[in-house]
Simulated scan of single mutants.
Amino acid sequence: MANLFNILFSEVNLVLTILLIVLLLYWVFTMIGGLDYDVDFDVEVDLDPAIDAGTGMDGGNMDFQDLSNAEVNQEDVVGKRRRPLKWWQVFLIYFNFVGLPFMFTFTCWIFIWWFMTVLTTAVTHSYDNYFGFSIMLIALFPALIVNKIFTTPFKGFFKNLNKDGDAPIDYLGRKGLLLSSISEDKMGNAEVKVDGSTMSIYVKSLTGEPLVYGSSVLIIKRSPDHNYYLVQTYND
């Protein structure tokens, strides 16, 4: 047992072990707090204003929950491009950081990388020398490949789930309460009650007219990229 502890927290494996523990704690708190899984996050090739449509950062509404569970959608990366993809976008797409919740893919990758490094350094007794560091760095690349193979079957699973694990909710025609002021292309959040549950969605003004915080709105339609909804003032 003491030897296992020495291996896991050796000079070579310490960083990956601590990172894995942090990720495991994150998932524990996620399950306890019931955080969302499928918040959309656009990666735009030319970093134009459409990025705000996926992140909600324009309205200052992006929080830790949104970022950590962000999902990068392939149609947003490829479908809207006007120039060739950059290397990091190709990387994200190929290794399944696109199309799956980012933290899910990232956690799987870190675990596989950690497992390969710990196992190899333990077998070769190199967990406390320079050769072990070389093994750790080299293992990064096969870990990405194994992670791609492992996570690919989950694409269909996550694609058909919303944050509650049920069929997607139809928000069209529902009333909502603005949680931030919006106007023109500025995005904000709206609170919508569905079957007794309160949901938060990203919204924009249908006509571009200013809508203030606390206003009642009616959800008219969904954006073509499915990242937000268009709303207008609703008077009871």
Rank of each mutant, 00 (worst) to 15 (best):
T30L: 06
M187L: 12
D63C: 03
E71K: 13
P84R: 10
K186Y: 03
D66K: 14
Y37I: 11
G156N: 15
T17M: 07
D170K: 11
F102T: 01
K80T: 12
K204C: 06
Q89L: 10
L35A: 08
G56Y: 07
S200G: 01
Y229L: 11
V12P: 02
E71Y: 00
V90T: 13
R83N: 15
F158I: 08
Y127K: 07
D38L: 08
V203Q: 05
F141A: 10
G208V: 06
K221E: 15
K186Q: 13
V118N: 02
W109K: 01
K148E: 06
R82Y: 07
I51C: 02
I169H: 02
F102Q: 03
W114H: 13
G56A: 08
L119W: 07
K86H: 13
I135K: 04
W88F: 15
N227R: 13
T152W: 06
L24K: 00
G188K: 04
L23V: 09
V98Q: 05
T105Q: 02
N160P: 02
P49Y: 07
S181E: 14
L47K: 07
I201G: 01
W113V: 01
I135P: 02
V212A: 07
G59F: 04
N147Y: 01
H125C: 05
K186G: 00
D58V: 11
V231M: 06
G59S: 07
L218G: 01
G208I: 10
G176T: 02
P153F: 00
D38W: 00
D48H: 03
I220K: 11
F157E: 11
V146T: 11
Y94V: 15
S68R: 04
L140A: 14
V90Y: 04
T233H: 08
Y171A: 05
F97H: 07
F141G: 00
V194Q: 04
F157L: 14
M103G: 01
K221V: 01
G173E: 12
G214E: 09
N3M: 11
G196M: 08
V231I: 15
G33M: 11
L161N: 04
V22C: 13
Q74A: 13
E191K: 14
A167T: 14
L23G: 12
Y213A: 02
M1T: 13
N96A: 05
N69S: 14
G214H: 05
I7S: 02
K80C: 02
I110S: 06
L25P: 03
W113Q: 05
A2P: 00
L24H: 03
P142G: 05
S10T: 12
S134V: 14
M103C: 06
T152Y: 09
L100E: 00
D38N: 13
I21T: 11
L92S: 07
W109G: 00
K193I: 15
V118S: 01
K163C: 09
S200L: 10
Q65I: 12
